[in-house]
């Protein structure tokens, strides 16, 4: 009898027998250990170790030129009193709500519309997904043309007689943040749509059939069959959205640099400008730690539960 009892997958009806469970204490094959350790080591070298250093830097004052000076939690107390940091935190929450919320709604809606294979659906899906494959520099350029004074946005408004709305979209503190969310959504909705399309595809058609037999209409089927079945997908979408929101940097940096005067500043852009423009690397690292903790706090609870269920 092998000690290499495979962790039986959830899809196999029986599940692990109690006998197999008791074998947990056994050690795995060394080759398997290597399978795990090598990738883990690579990630340790390029991610964990630098991250630990980053945590350490957050406790220092450092201009990147001279060796860092240890100052304890000085950077964190300064953060607490920093108005720009508070503004960035608020903007990040707005970003999370708007960017996150709208890309879920938009992505889910598109997935529902495009889930059935019919003529043209492939093209529509491809169209919505295309922006996902572009880099930030490409996206920023496309949208910069759109927002230019007398650019596409202004021309469109003029064409429909709304020229009184025209303003310097990216340079007006009232609109800058929202003008940046739009391109971010443009890239994200296609991505979320694909996640949901896969989720919808995985739902057993028999469930819908059964509901239909019971006389449920389309809306009831959506509410009582589709949405509950998508729990797994929702989890992944949530993680993706939170990570992407907190990490959203490229597009904001490319379009506004967090300006004008911090009005579109997110934690990620403030971190970058504190570290690399003001050369306050310790302070920047402290902001990065805050971002990390926020991401972890939102996601960890969910992930742990997901793992407990599955593994």
């Amino acid at each position: 009898m092998s000690t290499l009892a495979p962790a039986t997958s959830r899809t196999s009806a029986a599940g692990p027998t109690p006998k197999q469970r008791r074998r947990r204490a056994n050690r795995p094959s060394p080759l398997l250990v290597a399978f795990v350790l090598v990738p883990f080591a690579v990630e340790s070298i390029w991610v964990f170790w630098p991250a630990l250093q980053g945590f350490y830097f957050s406790l220092t004052r450092w201009d990147g030129l001279e060796p860092p000076t240890f100052i304890g939690f000085g950077n964190y107390t300064e953060l607490a009193g920093d108005a720009v940091f508070r503004g960035a935190l608020v903007n990040t929450v707005i970003w999370l709500a708007l960017f996150g919320g709208l890309s879920v709604l938009g992505g889910f809606g598109m997935a529902l519309l495009l889930q059935r294979e019919r003529r043209g659906v492939g093209f529509y899906r491809a169209a919505l997904f295309t922006p996902v494959v572009f880099s930030l520099v490409v996206t920023a350029l496309v949208w910069r043309v759109f927002y230019q004074p007398d650019g596409l946005a202004d021309q469109l408004l003029r064409a429909v007689g709304l020229e009184q709305l025209i303003r310097p979209w990216l340079a007006d503190p009232q609109t800058a943040l929202y003008a940046v969310i739009l391109p971010a959504l443009w890239r994200q909705i296609g991505y979320v749509m694909v996640l949901y399309l896969a989720g919808l595809k995985a739902i057993d058609p028999a469930l819908h059939e059964a509901a239909r037999m019971d006389g449920a209409n389309a809306r009831q089927r959506l509410r009582h069959v589709t949405i509950p079945q998508l729990r797994g997908v929702n989890a992944v979408v949530l993680s993706v959205i939170v990570i992407d929101s907190l990490r959203s940097f490229d597009i904001v940096w490319a379009l506004t640099h967090g300006g004008p005067y911090h009005s579109s500043e997110l934690l990620s852009t403030y971190m970058y400008s504190a570290a690399f423009q003001s050369l306050r690397l310790g302070y920047g690292s402290a902001i990065a730690v805050v971002i990390f903790i926020l991401a972890l706090a939102v996601i960890l609870g969910y992930l742990v539960r997901a793992f407990r269920e599955d593994a």
Binding site: W46, V47, W49, P50, A51, Q53, G54, F57, G64, I243, L246, R247, F249, S268, M271, Y272, A275, F276, L281, G284, S285, A288, V289, I291, F292, A295, L296, I299
Partner: peptide, 10 residues
Amino acid sequence: LLPPQILLIP
């Protein structure tokens, strides 16, 4: 999940 910026310098 780490914000990549924290890793840049190290």
